[in-house]
Amino acid sequence: MLEGKVKWSNSEKGFGFIEVEGQDDVFVHFSAIQGEGFKTLEEGQAVSFEIVEGNRGPQAANVTKEA
Rank of each mutant, 00 (worst) to 15 (best):
M1E: 05
M1K: 15
L2M: 11
L2G: 04
L2H: 10
L2V: 11
L2N: 06
E3N: 15
E3L: 15
E3Y: 15
G4W: 04
G4N: 02
G4A: 02
G4V: 03
G4Y: 04
K5H: 10
V6Y: 02
V6G: 02
V6W: 07
V6N: 01
V6D: 00
V6E: 00
V6M: 06
V6Q: 01
K7V: 07
K7D: 00
K7F: 05
K7W: 05
K7A: 04
K7Q: 02
K7Y: 04
K7I: 07
W8K: 00
W8A: 00
W8Y: 13
W8H: 03
W8E: 00
W8R: 00
W8N: 00
W8T: 00
S9Y: 15
S9P: 00
S9I: 15
S9M: 15
N10W: 09
N10K: 05
N10M: 06
N10T: 06
N10P: 00
N10Q: 05
N10R: 05
S11P: 14
S11W: 13
S11L: 14
E12H: 11
E12F: 12
E12M: 13
E12C: 15
E12Q: 13
E12I: 13
K13A: 09
K13C: 12
K13H: 07
K13L: 11
K13P: 03
G14P: 03
G14K: 12
G14Q: 11
G14E: 06
G14F: 10
F15H: 02
F15N: 00
F15D: 00
F15R: 00
F15G: 02
G16R: 01
G16I: 05
G16P: 02
G16C: 06
F17V: 03
F17L: 04
F17S: 02
F17G: 00
F17C: 07
I18K: 00
I18N: 01
I18F: 02
E19K: 13
E19W: 10
V20R: 07
V20Y: 06
V20W: 08
V20H: 03
V20T: 07
V20Q: 03
V20K: 03
V20C: 07
E21Y: 12
E21C: 14
E21V: 11
E21G: 07
G22W: 05
G22M: 05
G22E: 04
G22T: 03
Q23N: 08
Q23M: 14
Q23V: 07
Q23H: 14
Q23F: 13
D24N: 12
D24Y: 09
D24P: 15
D24S: 12
D25P: 06
D25H: 04
D25K: 03
D25T: 04
V26T: 04
V26E: 00
V26N: 00
V26I: 10
V26K: 02
V26M: 03
V26P: 01
F27C: 08
F27Q: 00
V28Y: 14
V28W: 15
V28T: 03
V28G: 02
V28L: 07
V28S: 01
V28D: 01
H29D: 05
H29V: 05
H29I: 06
F30V: 06
F30S: 02
F30H: 04
F30A: 03
F30Q: 03
F30G: 01
F30T: 02
F30M: 05
S31R: 05
S31A: 06
S31P: 00
S31Q: 05
S31D: 05
S31E: 04
S31M: 05
S31W: 07
A32M: 07
A32K: 06
A32D: 08
A32S: 10
I33L: 12
I33S: 03
I33Q: 03
Q34V: 14
Q34N: 13
Q34W: 08
Q34I: 15
Q34L: 14
Q34G: 08
G35Q: 07
G35A: 07
G35L: 05
G35W: 10
E36H: 11
E36F: 11
E36K: 11
G37T: 09
G37S: 08
G37I: 08
G37V: 08
G37Q: 08
G37Y: 07
G37F: 08
F38R: 11
K39D: 09
K39P: 10
K39Y: 08
T40Q: 09
T40L: 10
T40K: 09
T40W: 13
T40S: 11
T40A: 08
T40N: 09
L41A: 02
L41M: 07
E42N: 10
E42Q: 12
E42G: 08
E42H: 13
E42D: 10
E43P: 15
E43S: 12
E43R: 15
E43W: 14
G44E: 02
G44A: 04
G44L: 02
G44T: 03
Q45L: 07
Q45N: 08
Q45A: 10
A46W: 15
A46I: 15
A46F: 14
A46C: 14
A46R: 15
A46K: 15
V47N: 00
V47Q: 01
S48W: 15
S48C: 13
S48T: 13
S48F: 14
S48Y: 14
S48K: 14
S48M: 13
F49K: 01
E50H: 12
E50F: 13
E50A: 08
E50I: 15
I51F: 03
I51S: 02
I51Y: 04
V52L: 07
V52P: 01
V52G: 03
V52E: 06
V52H: 07
V52A: 06
V52K: 08
V52S: 06
E53S: 11
E53A: 12
E53G: 07
E53I: 15
G54A: 06
G54Q: 04
G54N: 06
G54H: 06
G54V: 04
G54Y: 07
G54T: 13
G54W: 07
N55C: 15
N55W: 15
N55G: 10
N55L: 14
N55Y: 15
R56W: 15
R56L: 09
R56G: 07
R56S: 08
R56C: 13
G57H: 04
P58F: 09
P58T: 07
P58A: 07
P58M: 09
P58H: 06
P58K: 11
P58L: 10
Q59N: 04
Q59C: 08
Q59G: 03
Q59W: 07
Q59P: 04
A60S: 03
A60H: 02
A60D: 01
A60P: 02
A60E: 02
A60G: 03
A61Q: 09
A61P: 00
A61Y: 09
A61V: 12
A61G: 07
A61L: 07
N62L: 07
N62Y: 08
N62I: 05
N62R: 10
N62E: 04
N62D: 03
V63P: 03
V63D: 00
V63L: 07
V63S: 02
V63E: 03
V63M: 03
T64N: 10
T64G: 05
T64Y: 13
T64I: 14
T64C: 09
T64M: 12
K65T: 11
K65F: 14
K65M: 13
E66P: 11
E66R: 15
E66N: 14
E66D: 10
E66T: 15
A67D: 12
A67V: 13
A67S: 12
A67M: 12
